[in-house]
Every structure is written in structure tokens, then in C-alpha cells.
Lab assay of single mutants.
Amino acid sequence: MQRVNMIMAESPGLITICLLGYLLSAECTVFLDHENANKILNRPKRYNSGKLEEFVQGNLERECMEEKCSFEEAREVFENTERTTEFWKQYVDGDQCESNPCLNGGSCKDDINSYECWCPFGFEGKNCELDVTCNIKNGRCEQFCKNSADNKVVCSCTEGYRLAENQKSCEPAVPFPCGRVSVSQTSKLTRAETVFPDVDYVNSTEAETILDNITQSTQSFNDFTRVVGGEDAKPGQFPWQVVLNGKVDAFCGGSIVNEKWIVTAAHCVETGVKITVVAGEHNIEETEHTEQKRNVIRIIPHHNYNAAINKYNHDIALLELDEPLVLNSYVTPICIADKEYTNIFLKFGSGYVSGWGRVFHKGRSALVLQYLRVPLVDRATCLRSTKFTIYNNMFCAGFHEGGRDSCQGDSGGPHVTEVEGTSFLTGIISWGEECAMKGKYGIYTKVSRYVNWIKEKTKLT
């Protein structure tokens, strides 16, 4: 034993070699072989497995989906700052455009905790909710729209109204504003409101030439003092309507412009014939205590009207009353817009006519005020429907199939267009061939041609 100890002390290297040989010859039971080890760690190889990531292109799944990435790591994937920024906006807080917040056709661009709407022409605001041009839906104005110097929408209202708090709607500024039905039992019968379409306001006024200088022999019209197929109006439903009495009662109609003036057809009036105007009328054979009678003290036909040349060209006249009318729910003026808007309103496509005229061709006159909704007829169809001249200051309205029309005794009465609950004068009943005849239409004086003249002559002093 002493000898062994001496050998170990003198030859430590020998001992180490012996131990190493023993270990190498022993069977290893701690580690699995290569094949079995792979069965336990069965993990798919990654895209760049075996390579240094710093030297390969980034992978979106590896960089940002398996674990949260930084902007720089995302930049490695896209290799483009702009594309990385677009991805980053949604990656950080989701897609803010998912709810489609942009209105009126706006395009949404996502941002971090926010979004941006790219608005089409005519709109602005956070969600493109603000109209900035009158060309689109009248700028959301209830009545009139004008573009300011910086191309912003400025709404306005006709006389007797003021802008509401929203700067879009119009509200009454006087007790009985024009064009409004205020009798409670008839307010439910107000005709369907007309909503502004998209309009090209630059070209809204037709490029028409008034044929002022045409000389033409007097034409022989049949029954051209021209509501057939209409309905009984309720008291106060058309408070701007008046009836004219002269040699015979209810020979023509008219509309209240203001307390002192009536507008009617020029062919209705004769110099030297006494005319009485009755406002607030409903049943011409009954006294309903809503009527107001006034005498006409002055007749002003349009300066281009000449019955000797043509009885229905420039067929418009103004009547001055001896005493002002007292405005109330049964006696209310009709609204008159400017030339541009009167023309736009007419193009809405349908209007209402009213009167006490004959209820059928050569038949009896109506006792109760009649009204009828009539569609506008395109000019080409209008011209083809008659052998008589249709001037540019006239328009056609009615039904091709016949059966409904204005008729004798309705002449001078109103053709009105309702705009968001307020009625505007767009025409004056003038003439036609018979009444409600198939293929024939009622012919009306186009008020847009005469609004400046009306307003100039009827100013209240």
C-alpha cells in the first residue's frame, strides 16, 4: 500500500490518463441519441435557420407576430419608411378606419389613436360632414345658397324668414311668412316636400332668348283662358290664391305678392273693366268669414305684352289694390325667389296649380277651390304637342294621358313649387288646347323671366 501511494504521488498524470480511459469505455446513459432527441424537440425550422439574422431580410411573422416588435424591426421587413409607417399605425392600436367614419364618399386613412378623412370636392370637416359648395344638395341650405369668396357655403332665406341657429334652416321672422300653410287642420295635408338634388348652379339658368321682337298675326285659340281631375282644397291650404270678379264672377285667378299687390295673367284683364279681388276665398257660393274683398285701382301688364300681336306672350300683369290686405292664416303671400332659384325650383319637376275653373272641358265651374299636382314636361315634348308657338318664356306641365289639367277660369292662378315646406311661385296658368285632352298640356308663363320686374313694381313704400 505504501508503494502504491508513492507511485500516485510521483505520477499524477498517469492516474488522470487511467481515469479518462475508464470513462470513455463506459456506456453513456444520461444523453439520448440524435434521433430520439429530435422526437422530443420537434420544432419547425425557421426561415433563416442556421444563418445569422443580421444578414437576412426581415420576416413579418418572425419579427412582429411571434413577439412584439419595434418600429426598427418592422422597418427591416418593409425596407421602406412609408410602408412601415402605414403598417405601424394599425399594428400599434388597430384600424381606426374600420367603422368607416368618413361621410359623403370620403376616404379614410388610419393613424395612431386617430384617423384622417380625405374629402371629395365640396366637403370638409373631420368626417367630411361639412358642405362647402352650393353645387351639392344646395349646400344643405333649406332655401338659398351662395358661395363666399373663400368658396364656403353661405345660406340665406327669402323675405319674412331668418336663418336658424344651425345656419342652414329657415324659420319665420314674421307672423305670416310667405308660402307657408298655417291653418292647423290643413298642415297635415301639406304636399310632399321637395329635397334639393345635386345641381350645376353655374349652368342652372337656361341660355334662352326671349323672342321679344317676333311679330306674329293673332292666333285663334280655343278655350285658351284655361282644375280638371283635381281635388277639393281645404280652407287655408292655398292662402296665396285669390279669385278675380268682373263682368262675371271667378273669371280668373291670381296670387298675393304682398298686402297691396296681386300677380295674374295679362290676358285676364281689360282696361276700363272694374275688377274686384277676393282673398281668403274657399267656396265661392258661401260666406265663410275668411274672405277679404278689395278693388283694383291700377293694372300693370308687362311692358312687352301686346294682345294685338299675341294674347299669351309675356302673359303676366300686376294688380294694385285700393287697401292693403290683412295677412292671416287664410290670406298669405306666395314666396318669389330670384331668377336663378325660381328656375331651379321649376326644374324640380312638379308643381301645384289651383283655381275655381271648370271641372271638365266646357263644363261647370268649381264651387270649392280645386288643386292638382302636375309634372313638368320637357321642352321637346311640349313643342311636338301643339302647332302653336311655345315661346321661351312659357313652359308645359300636365299629363300625356289627359284627364287632369287646369281649365277655363283658372287662368292667372299660381303654379307653385314647394321647397322644404315653403311654396314659391314658378308659373302662372296661361293657356292650353281644350282641357285635359290626351297628348295636350297646360301652358304656363315662366315666372323666372319676370321676377325682377315683379319685385321692382310691387315694392311697398
Rank of each mutant, 00 (worst) to 15 (best):
Q90K: 15
S187F: 09
D93K: 15
V77R: 15
D110F: 14
Q408L: 15
S350G: 14
E124T: 09
L460I: 04
N80I: 03
D249N: 05
Q143T: 02
D232N: 12
A26R: 00
P239R: 00
W453H: 00
Q185M: 05
A233R: 05
E286G: 10
L103T: 08
D405K: 14
S11G: 13
K455T: 13
T190R: 05
F176G: 02
L321D: 01
I443R: 04
E79W: 15
S385L: 07
A366K: 12
C18A: 07
H361T: 12
G236I: 06
K455H: 13
L369C: 03
L163E: 02
G402P: 06
N222V: 09
K137T: 08
K126I: 12
D315E: 02
K347S: 14
E433F: 14
N245E: 08
L369Q: 06
K339S: 15
L367S: 07
P177A: 09
V195W: 12
E401A: 11
K440N: 14
T16C: 07
A308F: 05
S49W: 06
D232L: 05
V359W: 13
V174T: 07
C134Y: 02
I112E: 15
W240A: 00
T381G: 07
I428L: 15
V30G: 15
T16F: 13
P177S: 05
G409V: 03
T16R: 07
T225W: 12
N213T: 07
L163M: 05
F71T: 15
H289S: 13
E53P: 12
S99F: 14
D200W: 10
A265K: 01
F345V: 07
L211N: 08
N203Q: 05
T190P: 09
S448W: 02
S430E: 04
E433T: 04
F221R: 11
C97W: 02
N36L: 05
F399P: 14
T417I: 09
Y312F: 12
P414W: 05
G272H: 08
F251S: 07
G160K: 01
G272V: 04
Q241A: 12
E434W: 14
F221E: 10
C97L: 02
V377M: 14
C252I: 01
Y115M: 06
E401G: 05
Y161Q: 02
C407T: 05
G160Y: 02
E288Q: 06
N38V: 09
G349S: 10
L14A: 05
I300F: 06
C18E: 01
Q2M: 13
A436S: 07
N313C: 11
I256Y: 00
W453K: 00
F238E: 01
I299K: 09
R373T: 13
Y391I: 03
Y330F: 12
S220L: 10
D198A: 10
D338S: 04
Y22N: 03
S99K: 14
R373G: 06
D93N: 15
A366V: 04
T186E: 10
P101D: 05
N295K: 10
A397F: 02
G125M: 02
G357A: 15
S423Y: 07
E456Q: 07
H314T: 02
R46D: 07
E320F: 01
T218Y: 06
K247P: 11
R384Y: 13
K146D: 09
R83L: 11
Y115W: 14
S107M: 07
E433K: 06
I299D: 02
I7C: 05
F144G: 00
F31V: 12
K260A: 03
T426L: 01
G179P: 01
V199S: 08
L32K: 14
P175R: 08
R83M: 03
R46Y: 11
E401V: 03
R140E: 14
G13M: 06
H303F: 10
S204D: 08
N38S: 13
I344Q: 04
S156D: 10
A250E: 10
T426Y: 01
Y201H: 10
Y22A: 10
H303V: 08
V374D: 01
S169D: 05
E76Y: 15
K39E: 09
K146G: 04
G179N: 02
L32D: 15
P177I: 01
R358T: 12
M437C: 11
A250R: 06
N166V: 01
M65Y: 12
C69P: 11
A9Y: 05
G432H: 08
T209N: 12
P333M: 02
E420N: 12
R162P: 01
N306A: 08
R43M: 08
Y115E: 14
I390T: 13
G439M: 04
C252N: 00
G229L: 12
R226A: 04
V353C: 06
T426C: 00
G254Q: 00
E165K: 11
S25E: 03
K68W: 15
C268H: 00
